[in-house]
Simulated scan of single mutants.
Amino acid sequence: MEPVEPRTSWTFVTQHARILAMILRDPEIRVRDLATECRLTERATQAIVTDLETAGYLTRERHGRRNHYEVTPGTLFRHPAEGRHEIAQLLRLLVDLDRVAETDPRPAGDDGDRHERPPPG
């Protein structure tokens, strides 16, 4: 049997969720920095921030030359399957994962010996 190639390059966390969590962590983060972290263009990142603002998930105010963002508390997931749940728990999880990653000395993607694959054969 031939190995099956992945259908697409998808992730469990959407760019919208990722950006919202990053804004929660740093309310004065620049679009340029969001784009770099998410591996998106600044234009795509700005469109996502606008989506989130338009949908009521965050507000934006100018503070001098910078934007200051505030994540709106009590907002719910958009999909009916999760629609009765607040997104706050997911955002806290993502922010906590970022904090753990900053203090973990292992390179990204290194899960240590816990998930080591057995040798082929």
Rank of each mutant, 00 (worst) to 15 (best):
M1Q: 14
M1D: 15
E2R: 15
E2C: 08
V4W: 12
T8A: 13
S9I: 11
W10H: 11
T11F: 02
T11I: 05
T11C: 07
T11E: 15
F12R: 15
V13Q: 10
T14A: 01
Q15T: 08
A17T: 06
A17P: 03
I19C: 04
A21T: 03
M22I: 01
L24Y: 04
L24C: 10
R25I: 00
P27M: 01
P27G: 03
E28N: 11
R30Y: 09
R32F: 04
L34W: 04
L34I: 06
L34K: 05
A35Q: 11
A35V: 06
T36R: 15
E37M: 02
E37Y: 01
E37K: 01
E37S: 04
C38L: 05
C38A: 15
C38P: 10
R39Q: 14
R39V: 08
L40S: 10
L40R: 12
T41K: 04
A44P: 07
A44M: 10
T45K: 01
Q46T: 09
Q46G: 07
A47G: 08
A47S: 12
I48K: 00
I48W: 00
V49F: 01
V49I: 07
T50P: 03
T50D: 09
L52K: 02
E53G: 00
Y57E: 11
L58Y: 04
L58P: 10
E61K: 04
E61L: 03
R62P: 06
R66M: 04
R66G: 05
R66A: 05
R66E: 10
N67H: 14
N67E: 09
H68I: 13
H68K: 14
Y69E: 13
E70L: 05
V71W: 03
V71T: 14
T72C: 09
P73I: 02
G74C: 07
L76Y: 12
F77N: 12
F77S: 13
R78A: 13
R78I: 11
H79L: 11
H79M: 09
P80F: 05
P80Y: 10
A81W: 06
E82I: 05
E82T: 14
G83S: 14
G83Y: 06
G83A: 14
E86N: 08
A88C: 08
A88T: 14
A88P: 07
Q89G: 14
L90D: 09
L91Y: 05
L91I: 13
L91M: 14
L91D: 12
L94Y: 01
V95N: 00
D96Q: 06
A101G: 11
T103L: 00
D104N: 03
D104H: 00
P105C: 05
A108F: 02
A108M: 05
D110W: 01
G112W: 03
G112H: 06
G112D: 13
D113K: 04
E116F: 04
E116C: 09
R117I: 04
R117E: 15
P118L: 08
P118S: 13
P120R: 03
P120E: 12
G121C: 07
